[in-house]
Simulated scan of single mutants.
Amino acid sequence: MPHTIPGRNAAPEEGITETTTRLRPIPAEVPAKPPTSAGPLPGAGRPFVTFARPEVYDEDTARLRPVGARTRPRVVAVVACVVLGLGLIGGAATGSWLTGDSAGADGARGAFTAAGSLWHSVPVDQLFPPTVQGQGAGPGGADRTWTRIAVAPDSGCANAFDPLLRKALAPVGCLRLLRATYTDATRSHVTTVGLLFTKADAAAMTSLKTRFQQEGLERRTDLMPRPYAVENTVAAGFGNAQRASWTVSVLTDAPVVVYAVSGFADARAVTDPQPAEDAMESGATTAPAQAGLGHEAQGLADRIERSLRKTVVSATEKPS
């Protein structure tokens, strides 16, 4: 049952603080020595060549090819081309190795793996900043500012989702769920944003994303995420009946599902919740659309996702 809304002058409850160590930078690999240059070219003296016949034939054309005067320049030219080619290939391979370009696939796999461990290796303030700026995130490109009012303890997914959404997410598993609730500058809207860290590999995440897109699962009202309500805050009455707009994003470059759900801070029930994508369309007339709650959910989810990606990059980049 929703809780009674506290007074507007009540100070927001502080979020739960995590004391964790930051990710350690990955040591750079020691580059191997580049291949040594090829040996000297053949001697300057004219080579002594003998053949069984005074003339030889090209098999393709059956034309006579003279032997003698032009043999040495051609041999020298061929050897020079081989040496130059090997040098260029060796240099390019060494340069690519040193810069990491040849390990693009390995780098992507490393970033994917690193992202899966962020829930316990990065401070909560880095995943859910106390204040999030949303330049141009509101209706008509208006700026938004969201202030964190509560962070839920990290948990599993047993009671965090409605049954159908939990079933839809089951193929990727639930490693850990992190959630935080924010309010806008006017304290009239509340939004819960979540990071579901899965147990899946990249192929499973891609499969889930494809299913969500093809079946339109992110638009179904029976698959809305649940909010995180907190007593003695403006989100005290933010229950399931107050869900107004939402978004769900399945990432493929990280084992993470990012979602957000928004509602009114006055605990009013919403009878026609609308996906953020629809609520943000020009001319939408539903209550969530008119109040800008689609922008609240989508804007905050986008920025938390961007912050997550930056954290992954920082965790995997090689030191200079």
Score class of each variant (00 low, 15 high):
308 L>Q: 00
10 A>D: 15
185 A>G: 04
217 L>P: 10
199 K>H: 12
27 P>T: 05
167 K>P: 15
318 K>M: 13
191 T>S: 08
235 A>M: 03
118 L>P: 00
232 N>L: 13
278 D>F: 10
134 G>R: 06
259 Y>P: 02
130 P>T: 09
93 A>F: 06
56 V>F: 13
277 E>M: 04
293 L>A: 07
104 G>M: 05
37 S>C: 12
159 N>C: 13
204 A>H: 08
269 A>P: 01
109 R>P: 00
184 D>E: 07
49 V>R: 15
64 L>R: 13
70 R>Q: 09
220 R>C: 06
79 V>K: 10
233 T>S: 02
288 P>K: 04
103 A>H: 13
127 L>K: 03
274 Q>A: 09
227 P>Y: 01
201 D>A: 01
26 I>F: 02
93 A>M: 06
270 V>P: 09
137 A>I: 08
73 P>F: 12
160 A>I: 00
152 A>R: 03
99 T>M: 04
118 L>A: 00
56 V>H: 08
98 L>G: 15
223 L>S: 11
52 A>Y: 14
269 A>I: 06
138 G>V: 03
283 G>N: 06
149 I>Y: 13
2 P>R: 01
58 D>P: 15
237 G>L: 07
3 H>F: 14
167 K>N: 11
161 F>I: 02
228 Y>F: 10
295 H>A: 05
44 A>V: 11
219 R>T: 15
121 S>E: 06
35 P>D: 15
114 A>P: 00
32 A>N: 04
85 G>N: 08
271 T>S: 14
186 T>R: 13
1 M>V: 13
246 W>I: 02
